[in-house]
Simulated assay, not measured.
Amino acid sequence: MPQVSAAITNERVAWVDYSKGICILLVVMMHATLGVEDAVGKTGFMHYMVEFARPFRMPDFFLLSGLFLARVIDRDWRLYLDRKVVHFFYFYILWLLIQGAFKWPGLALSEGPAAVAEQFLLALVEPFGTLWFIYLLPIFFVAAKLLKPAPRWLVLVAAAALEMAVIHTGWTVIDEFAERFVYFVIGWTFAPHIFAFARRVGREPLPALVGLPAWAAVNALCVALGIATLPGMAMLLGLLGSAAIVAIGTLLARARLGELIRFAGEHSITIYLAFFLPMAVSRLVLLKTGIVTDVGWISLIVWLSAALSPLVLYLAIRKTGWGTFLFERPKAFRIDRPRRKLAPAE
Protein backbone atom coordinates (compact mmCIF):
# COMPACT_ATOMS: atom_id res chain seq x y z
CA MET A 1 0.00 0.00 0.00
CA PRO A 2 1.36 3.45 -0.86
CA GLN A 3 2.06 5.83 1.96
CA VAL A 4 -0.64 8.36 2.75
CA SER A 5 0.30 11.65 1.18
CA ALA A 6 1.00 14.74 3.23
CA ALA A 7 -2.15 16.34 1.83
CA ILE A 8 -4.31 13.87 3.73
CA THR A 9 -3.05 15.20 7.05
CA ASN A 10 -4.31 18.74 6.42
CA GLU A 11 -7.17 19.87 8.62
CA ARG A 12 -9.11 21.32 5.67
CA VAL A 13 -8.69 20.52 2.00
CA ALA A 14 -10.59 22.88 -0.29
CA TRP A 15 -11.66 20.37 -2.93
CA VAL A 16 -12.91 17.97 -0.25
CA ASP A 17 -15.12 20.70 1.20
CA TYR A 18 -16.43 21.57 -2.25
CA SER A 19 -17.15 17.90 -2.96
CA LYS A 20 -18.89 17.42 0.38
CA GLY A 21 -20.85 20.59 -0.29
CA ILE A 22 -22.10 19.23 -3.59
CA CYS A 23 -23.06 15.94 -1.94
CA ILE A 24 -24.98 17.46 0.97
CA LEU A 25 -26.83 19.82 -1.37
CA LEU A 26 -27.81 16.84 -3.53
CA VAL A 27 -29.01 14.95 -0.45
CA VAL A 28 -31.20 17.86 0.66
CA MET A 29 -32.43 18.27 -2.92
CA MET A 30 -33.59 14.67 -2.93
CA HIS A 31 -35.53 14.93 0.34
CA ALA A 32 -37.03 18.31 -0.56
CA THR A 33 -38.09 17.29 -4.06
CA LEU A 34 -39.49 13.87 -3.21
CA GLY A 35 -41.32 15.32 -0.21
CA VAL A 36 -43.06 17.93 -2.35
CA GLU A 37 -43.87 15.46 -5.10
CA ASP A 38 -45.27 12.98 -2.61
CA ALA A 39 -47.47 15.69 -1.09
CA VAL A 40 -48.97 16.85 -4.41
CA GLY A 41 -48.86 13.57 -6.31
CA LYS A 42 -46.99 15.06 -9.27
CA THR A 43 -43.40 15.39 -10.47
CA GLY A 44 -41.61 18.53 -11.60
CA PHE A 45 -38.38 19.44 -13.34
CA MET A 46 -36.37 18.92 -10.14
CA HIS A 47 -37.28 15.23 -10.25
CA TYR A 48 -34.92 14.69 -13.18
CA MET A 49 -32.03 16.26 -11.30
CA VAL A 50 -32.71 14.00 -8.33
CA GLU A 51 -32.77 10.91 -10.54
CA PHE A 52 -29.58 11.97 -12.34
CA ALA A 53 -27.72 12.20 -9.01
CA ARG A 54 -29.09 8.94 -7.58
CA PRO A 55 -26.23 6.68 -8.79
CA PHE A 56 -23.47 8.70 -7.12
CA ARG A 57 -25.08 10.91 -4.46
CA MET A 58 -24.55 8.61 -1.46
CA PRO A 59 -21.58 6.59 -2.80
CA ASP A 60 -19.53 9.77 -3.02
CA PHE A 61 -20.61 10.88 0.45
CA PHE A 62 -19.34 7.62 1.96
CA LEU A 63 -16.19 7.62 -0.16
CA LEU A 64 -15.35 11.11 1.09
CA SER A 65 -16.08 9.98 4.66
CA GLY A 66 -13.37 7.34 4.36
CA LEU A 67 -10.70 9.62 2.88
CA PHE A 68 -9.06 10.64 6.16
CA LEU A 69 -9.50 7.35 7.99
CA ALA A 70 -5.84 6.37 7.58
CA ARG A 71 -4.68 9.16 9.87
CA VAL A 72 -6.93 8.15 12.78
CA ILE A 73 -7.49 4.41 12.56
CA ASP A 74 -4.36 3.58 14.59
CA ARG A 75 -5.49 5.64 17.57
CA ASP A 76 -6.20 3.76 20.79
CA TRP A 77 -9.74 2.47 21.07
CA ARG A 78 -10.81 4.99 23.72
CA LEU A 79 -9.92 8.02 21.61
CA TYR A 80 -11.12 6.38 18.41
CA LEU A 81 -14.53 5.52 19.87
CA ASP A 82 -14.89 9.01 21.29
CA ARG A 83 -14.26 10.70 17.93
CA LYS A 84 -15.91 8.19 15.64
CA VAL A 85 -18.74 6.67 17.67
CA VAL A 86 -19.70 8.77 20.69
CA HIS A 87 -19.43 11.93 18.58
CA PHE A 88 -22.08 10.78 16.11
CA PHE A 89 -24.18 9.04 18.77
CA TYR A 90 -24.48 12.34 20.65
CA PHE A 91 -25.83 14.13 17.58
CA TYR A 92 -28.07 11.22 16.65
CA ILE A 93 -29.78 11.13 20.05
CA LEU A 94 -30.00 14.92 20.31
CA TRP A 95 -31.56 15.40 16.90
CA LEU A 96 -33.73 12.33 17.30
CA LEU A 97 -35.27 14.06 20.32
CA ILE A 98 -35.55 17.36 18.43
CA GLN A 99 -37.28 15.74 15.46
CA GLY A 100 -39.40 13.70 17.83
CA ALA A 101 -40.53 16.87 19.59
CA PHE A 102 -42.28 17.83 16.34
CA LYS A 103 -43.53 14.38 15.38
CA TRP A 104 -44.36 12.58 18.60
CA PRO A 105 -46.88 14.84 20.41
CA GLY A 106 -49.60 13.86 17.95
CA LEU A 107 -48.70 10.21 18.43
CA ALA A 108 -48.88 10.63 22.20
CA LEU A 109 -52.35 12.15 21.96
CA SER A 110 -53.68 9.48 19.63
CA GLU A 111 -51.97 6.34 20.96
CA GLY A 112 -50.57 7.33 24.33
CA PRO A 113 -47.09 7.86 25.82
CA ALA A 114 -46.24 4.17 25.43
CA ALA A 115 -46.31 4.59 21.65
CA VAL A 116 -43.78 7.41 21.91
CA ALA A 117 -41.50 5.30 24.10
CA GLU A 118 -41.80 2.50 21.58
CA GLN A 119 -40.82 4.83 18.74
CA PHE A 120 -37.79 6.08 20.67
CA LEU A 121 -36.59 2.57 21.50
CA LEU A 122 -37.16 1.48 17.91
CA ALA A 123 -35.02 4.40 16.72
CA LEU A 124 -32.08 2.97 18.67
CA VAL A 125 -31.99 -0.06 16.37
CA GLU A 126 -33.72 1.24 13.24
CA PRO A 127 -32.33 4.65 12.14
CA PHE A 128 -34.87 7.45 12.41
CA GLY A 129 -35.83 9.22 9.20
CA THR A 130 -33.14 11.38 7.66
CA LEU A 131 -30.66 10.61 10.46
CA TRP A 132 -29.66 7.18 9.08
CA PHE A 133 -26.35 8.47 7.66
CA ILE A 134 -24.87 9.51 11.01
CA TYR A 135 -26.26 6.32 12.55
CA LEU A 136 -24.38 4.22 10.00
CA LEU A 137 -21.06 6.10 9.96
CA PRO A 138 -19.96 4.92 13.45
CA ILE A 139 -20.69 1.34 12.39
CA PHE A 140 -18.44 1.83 9.36
CA PHE A 141 -15.65 3.26 11.50
CA VAL A 142 -15.79 0.40 14.00
CA ALA A 143 -15.96 -2.20 11.22
CA ALA A 144 -12.93 -0.65 9.51
CA LYS A 145 -10.84 -0.71 12.68
CA LEU A 146 -11.80 -4.32 13.40
CA LEU A 147 -10.98 -5.30 9.81
CA LYS A 148 -7.69 -3.41 9.63
CA PRO A 149 -5.54 -6.53 10.31
CA ALA A 150 -7.20 -8.35 7.38
CA PRO A 151 -5.75 -8.09 3.86
CA ARG A 152 -7.23 -4.96 2.34
CA TRP A 153 -7.88 -6.65 -1.00
CA LEU A 154 -9.99 -9.24 0.79
CA VAL A 155 -12.02 -6.54 2.57
CA LEU A 156 -12.55 -4.76 -0.76
CA VAL A 157 -13.68 -7.93 -2.51
CA ALA A 158 -16.07 -8.81 0.31
CA ALA A 159 -17.50 -5.28 0.44
CA ALA A 160 -17.95 -5.24 -3.34
CA ALA A 161 -19.70 -8.60 -3.19
CA LEU A 162 -22.09 -7.26 -0.55
CA GLU A 163 -22.90 -4.26 -2.74
CA MET A 164 -23.60 -6.37 -5.81
CA ALA A 165 -25.68 -8.86 -3.82
CA VAL A 166 -28.47 -6.23 -3.61
CA ILE A 167 -29.49 -7.22 -0.08
CA HIS A 168 -32.98 -6.17 1.08
CA THR A 169 -33.83 -7.36 4.59
CA GLY A 170 -35.97 -4.39 5.57
CA TRP A 171 -33.51 -3.41 8.30
CA THR A 172 -31.76 -0.19 7.28
CA VAL A 173 -28.52 -0.99 9.10
CA ILE A 174 -27.92 -4.24 7.23
CA ASP A 175 -29.21 -3.06 3.86
CA GLU A 176 -27.31 0.23 3.80
CA PHE A 177 -24.15 -1.34 5.23
CA ALA A 178 -24.16 -3.92 2.44
CA GLU A 179 -24.80 -1.29 -0.22
CA ARG A 180 -22.46 1.50 0.99
CA PHE A 181 -19.52 0.00 2.91
CA VAL A 182 -17.52 -0.66 -0.26
CA TYR A 183 -17.33 3.08 -1.03
CA PHE A 184 -16.12 3.84 2.49
CA VAL A 185 -13.40 1.19 2.12
CA ILE A 186 -12.44 2.55 -1.32
CA GLY A 187 -12.08 6.05 0.14
CA TRP A 188 -9.92 4.66 2.95
CA THR A 189 -7.80 2.38 0.74
CA PHE A 190 -7.28 4.60 -2.28
CA ALA A 191 -7.08 7.98 -0.54
CA PRO A 192 -3.54 8.68 -1.82
CA HIS A 193 -4.66 7.95 -5.39
CA ILE A 194 -7.77 10.09 -5.01
CA PHE A 195 -5.69 13.00 -3.74
CA ALA A 196 -3.25 12.45 -6.62
CA PHE A 197 -6.18 12.51 -9.07
CA ALA A 198 -7.40 15.80 -7.56
CA ARG A 199 -3.91 17.31 -7.81
CA ARG A 200 -3.69 16.29 -11.45
CA VAL A 201 -7.08 17.82 -12.23
CA GLY A 202 -5.90 21.00 -10.50
CA ARG A 203 -2.74 21.12 -12.60
CA GLU A 204 -4.31 20.03 -15.91
CA PRO A 205 -8.02 20.91 -15.90
CA LEU A 206 -8.65 20.48 -19.63
CA PRO A 207 -9.09 16.65 -19.61
CA ALA A 208 -11.60 16.98 -16.76
CA LEU A 209 -13.49 19.73 -18.56
CA VAL A 210 -13.75 17.48 -21.62
CA GLY A 211 -14.51 14.32 -19.67
CA LEU A 212 -17.22 15.67 -17.37
CA PRO A 213 -19.84 16.24 -20.13
CA ALA A 214 -19.15 12.71 -21.44
CA TRP A 215 -19.63 11.29 -17.94
CA ALA A 216 -22.86 13.27 -17.49
CA ALA A 217 -24.23 11.94 -20.77
CA VAL A 218 -23.39 8.31 -19.90
CA ASN A 219 -24.83 8.66 -16.39
CA ALA A 220 -28.03 10.27 -17.69
CA LEU A 221 -28.42 7.58 -20.38
CA CYS A 222 -28.04 4.75 -17.87
CA VAL A 223 -30.62 6.36 -15.58
CA ALA A 224 -33.04 6.90 -18.47
CA LEU A 225 -32.65 3.28 -19.64
CA GLY A 226 -33.29 1.99 -16.12
CA ILE A 227 -29.98 0.11 -15.91
CA ALA A 228 -28.31 2.34 -13.32
CA THR A 229 -29.37 0.09 -10.45
CA LEU A 230 -28.27 -3.23 -11.96
CA PRO A 231 -25.63 -5.17 -10.01
CA GLY A 232 -22.18 -4.11 -11.13
CA MET A 233 -23.51 -1.14 -13.11
CA ALA A 234 -24.59 0.57 -9.88
CA MET A 235 -21.08 0.32 -8.47
CA LEU A 236 -19.48 1.45 -11.73
CA LEU A 237 -21.71 4.52 -11.93
CA GLY A 238 -21.16 5.20 -8.22
CA LEU A 239 -17.40 5.24 -8.69
CA LEU A 240 -17.51 7.25 -11.93
CA GLY A 241 -19.84 9.76 -10.31
CA SER A 242 -17.59 10.00 -7.27
CA ALA A 243 -14.61 10.74 -9.52
CA ALA A 244 -16.69 13.37 -11.32
CA ILE A 245 -17.64 15.09 -8.05
CA VAL A 246 -13.99 15.08 -6.96
CA ALA A 247 -13.07 16.66 -10.30
CA ILE A 248 -15.83 19.27 -10.06
CA GLY A 249 -14.84 20.08 -6.48
CA THR A 250 -11.21 20.46 -7.56
CA LEU A 251 -12.13 22.72 -10.48
CA LEU A 252 -14.27 24.92 -8.23
CA ALA A 253 -11.48 25.13 -5.67
CA ARG A 254 -8.96 25.96 -8.40
CA ALA A 255 -11.16 28.76 -9.76
CA ARG A 256 -12.28 29.81 -6.27
CA LEU A 257 -15.89 29.74 -7.36
CA GLY A 258 -18.97 28.80 -5.38
CA GLU A 259 -17.73 29.75 -1.93
CA LEU A 260 -21.18 28.92 -0.54
CA ILE A 261 -20.76 25.33 -1.75
CA ARG A 262 -17.43 25.08 0.05
CA PHE A 263 -18.96 26.53 3.22
CA ALA A 264 -21.82 24.02 2.96
CA GLY A 265 -19.29 21.21 2.67
CA GLU A 266 -17.28 22.45 5.63
CA HIS A 267 -20.47 22.38 7.69
CA SER A 268 -22.22 19.47 5.98
CA ILE A 269 -23.20 17.83 9.27
CA THR A 270 -24.90 21.07 10.32
CA ILE A 271 -27.06 20.99 7.21
CA TYR A 272 -27.68 17.26 7.51
CA LEU A 273 -28.90 17.53 11.09
CA ALA A 274 -31.07 20.61 10.78
CA PHE A 275 -32.53 20.74 7.26
CA PHE A 276 -35.67 18.74 8.12
CA LEU A 277 -37.51 21.57 9.91
CA PRO A 278 -37.09 24.41 7.35
CA MET A 279 -37.87 21.84 4.66
CA ALA A 280 -41.14 20.85 6.31
CA VAL A 281 -42.13 24.44 7.14
CA SER A 282 -41.38 25.89 3.71
CA ARG A 283 -43.17 23.01 1.99
CA LEU A 284 -46.25 23.49 4.20
CA VAL A 285 -46.33 27.27 3.64
CA LEU A 286 -45.98 27.01 -0.14
CA LEU A 287 -48.56 24.26 -0.51
CA LYS A 288 -51.08 25.89 1.81
CA THR A 289 -50.80 29.42 0.44
CA GLY A 290 -50.56 28.51 -3.24
CA ILE A 291 -48.13 31.38 -3.85
CA VAL A 292 -46.26 29.10 -6.24
CA THR A 293 -48.15 26.41 -8.14
CA ASP A 294 -45.51 24.71 -10.28
CA VAL A 295 -44.20 21.55 -8.59
CA GLY A 296 -40.68 22.07 -9.85
CA TRP A 297 -40.42 25.63 -8.56
CA ILE A 298 -41.94 24.63 -5.22
CA SER A 299 -39.32 21.89 -4.93
CA LEU A 300 -36.55 24.32 -5.81
CA ILE A 301 -37.64 26.87 -3.20
CA VAL A 302 -38.06 24.19 -0.52
CA TRP A 303 -34.61 22.81 -1.37
CA LEU A 304 -32.89 26.20 -1.06
CA SER A 305 -34.74 26.99 2.16
CA ALA A 306 -33.83 23.62 3.67
CA ALA A 307 -30.18 23.85 2.63
CA LEU A 308 -29.49 27.46 3.59
CA SER A 309 -31.49 27.81 6.82
CA PRO A 310 -29.16 25.53 8.86
CA LEU A 311 -26.17 27.63 7.77
CA VAL A 312 -27.96 30.80 8.87
CA LEU A 313 -28.73 29.13 12.20
CA TYR A 314 -25.10 28.07 12.56
CA LEU A 315 -23.84 31.63 11.94
CA ALA A 316 -26.39 33.02 14.41
CA ILE A 317 -25.21 30.55 17.05
CA ARG A 318 -21.58 31.49 16.44
CA LYS A 319 -22.41 35.17 16.78
CA THR A 320 -24.54 34.87 19.93
CA GLY A 321 -22.93 31.85 21.58
CA TRP A 322 -26.39 30.43 22.31
CA GLY A 323 -27.23 26.89 21.30
CA THR A 324 -23.69 25.73 20.53
CA PHE A 325 -24.62 22.24 21.81
CA LEU A 326 -26.76 21.78 18.69
CA PHE A 327 -23.69 21.43 16.45
CA GLU A 328 -20.75 21.12 18.85
CA ARG A 329 -20.48 18.23 21.28
CA PRO A 330 -20.04 19.49 24.87
CA LYS A 331 -17.08 18.22 26.87
CA ALA A 332 -19.47 16.46 29.25
CA PHE A 333 -20.28 14.03 26.44
CA ARG A 334 -16.69 12.98 25.75
CA ILE A 335 -15.00 9.80 26.89
CA ASP A 336 -11.44 10.68 25.87
CA ARG A 337 -10.80 12.85 28.93
CA PRO A 338 -7.87 11.71 31.10
CA ARG A 339 -8.87 9.34 33.85
CA ARG A 340 -8.41 10.62 37.38
CA LYS A 341 -5.53 9.00 39.16
CA LEU A 342 -6.40 7.42 42.48
CA ALA A 343 -4.75 9.06 45.43
CA PRO A 344 -2.06 6.87 46.97
CA ALA A 345 -3.11 4.92 49.99
CA GLU A 346 -2.04 6.45 53.28
Rank of each mutant, 00 (worst) to 15 (best):
V142Q: 00
A114Q: 12
A115E: 14
V142A: 03
I93K: 00
R83P: 00
F128E: 09
V85A: 10
Y92V: 11
K103Y: 14
I98W: 14
L124H: 07
V86I: 15
L146E: 02
L96Q: 05
L97A: 15
F141Q: 03
G129C: 06
V85C: 06
E118P: 05
W153L: 14
W132D: 01
I139V: 14
F140D: 01
F133S: 00
K103I: 15
W104S: 00
F89C: 04
S110E: 14
A101M: 07
L136F: 02
L97F: 15
P149K: 06
E111S: 07
P138W: 14
E126W: 13
F88I: 03
P105K: 12
D82I: 01
E126R: 05
V116W: 04
L137V: 15
F102L: 12
E111C: 00
P151V: 04
F120P: 00
K103P: 04
Y135V: 14
E118L: 10
F141I: 02
G100T: 13
G112A: 03
P151T: 02
A117R: 02
A101R: 01
T130W: 03
Y90I: 08
V86F: 13
H87Q: 15
V125H: 10
I134W: 04
W132I: 03
R152W: 09
F133Q: 00
L136R: 03
A101G: 15
Y92D: 09
L96V: 06
Q99T: 04
Y90H: 09
L147M: 05
L121N: 04
K84R: 15
L137A: 03
Y90W: 13
K84T: 04
G129K: 12
L136N: 05
L122S: 02
G100Y: 13
I134G: 02
P138C: 12
Q99D: 00
L97C: 11
F88S: 01
Y135C: 12
I139T: 09
W95D: 06
G100A: 10
K84P: 02
L124N: 04
F88T: 01
G112K: 03
G112D: 04
R152V: 13
Y135A: 14
I139W: 09
